[in-house]
Design a binder for these strands. Sequence first.
DNA 1: CTTGCTGTGTACGCTAACGCACGGAAACGA
DNA 2: TCGTTTCCGTGCGTTAGCGTACACAGCAAG
Lengths: 239, 239
Amino acid sequence: MTLQLDPRQNHLLAALPRDKYERLAPHLERVDLTLGESLVESGMMMRHVYFPTDCIVSLLCVMETGDSTEIAVVGAEGIVGISLFMGGETTPSRAVVQSAGTAYRLKGQLLKDEFDRASTLQFLLLRYTQALITQMAQTAVCNRHHSLDQQLCRWLLLSLDRLPTNELVMTQELIANMLGVRREGVTESAGKLQKAELISYHRGRIRVLDRPGLEARVCECYPVVKKEYDRLLSYHRPG
Amino acid sequence: MTLQLDPRQNHLLAALPRDKYERLAPHLERVDLTLGESLVESGMMMRHVYFPTDCIVSLLCVMETGDSTEIAVVGAEGIVGISLFMGGETTPSRAVVQSAGTAYRLKGQLLKDEFDRASTLQFLLLRYTQALITQMAQTAVCNRHHSLDQQLCRWLLLSLDRLPTNELVMTQELIANMLGVRREGVTESAGKLQKAELISYHRGRIRVLDRPGLEARVCECYPVVKKEYDRLLSYHRPG
DNA sequence: CTTGCTGTGTACGCTAACGCACGGAAACGA
DNA sequence: TCGTTTCCGTGCGTTAGCGTACACAGCAAG
């Protein structure tokens, strides 16, 4: 595992031309992220942006009551901390590690400098941000119109797409927090999937047994987001 | 009314330095938009971006079933067509005129050229886009956690903020489409507000009688979005 | 082996919102 | 003036998801 680690497992970094990448590379700092760790707090100034390589980060809106909702999820295809280059510096949302792993971080100012050169990096980051916007919009739609069963499928598939394995370390309680629903609701929906032999569940470990089965149950929100990510982030990897 | 019309009623255009504005001004084309008109269709390439001056445009996600949900609303503070400068060219959502009025449009390529100069315009548009992202995220949260009553208040206030008057031309049917709920649900919630003498409602015309009353009933989603817009879009108007 | 904690299953009443159906009233057009 | 359409109000059975409560099984620490 350790041997394989390379910042360019992150797709954005991988898509940079060699010279631009090498300008940034010395400043990339490896960080090992643990489940539940918070990378960004609501309204707090960030010092770094994070490029995940094999972890997943959830963007959450937390409300006054403490209830929360995941509005998007970021993996190796993306970056955490878009407000740094978008110009707002802060956001009213949190970023929490949903699946432990590694990321590379970069000082905000360095990223911003590179971004402001109207470089390849700017091009990549803006397209990525547009994909992220689509994910958020579709989350809003899904929250409004689709059943918990469908939302759970969507969530599993989105997570799965960002993991190297088909096993996912996550309690029902945490999933409930992400989806902004009751834990018992997740138990019930997950139970259905288990009975259908699409997943197998055991004390905080989910194994996905039948991915096509999940795709058959999921609402349109998942394919809409997936297609948009594919479309917007399918640049060639340069030499 | 006609006399007052000036592209610089749009806040983004107004915030441009004089020389940059005058470079764009000859290419700004006035368009009068009618209720229900569609500016952008899902997946369709756009030729123009639109700067509203006194109209409101809704960004909608439409699903296979025909059900829709508003994910954000744009008025004189913003621009319609962010995917043109974000780089994706298209989006999977629609943009529909929610309140008739005027906008100024600009050929996409001209905007993109100006944007790519890393100009003031780029700065403004990116900050605006971040604000828009917040609005979408909060819409997702609101859809998940808050009652229709609260959501209606939020919607009314967001619309009100983008109108010069306290009167709003909009049937309950249309509001229901925006919020992604049943028409009857809107009837009921609006009825409550009417009984409380916060609004008065009559065949597609809503007058807001007691704005503080609405603000007292609305969920936190409204102030969160409002504050973020104020924070991100409070640049000085140049000489 | 016991104790305690964490994660999961289940049950029950409750409520907001849904789908559907209908009625009436205001505007509109001929 | 009369019919038609648009818009709003209301009622009713249904349902998904909520809040609460509790039972139980794995797992870890003592």
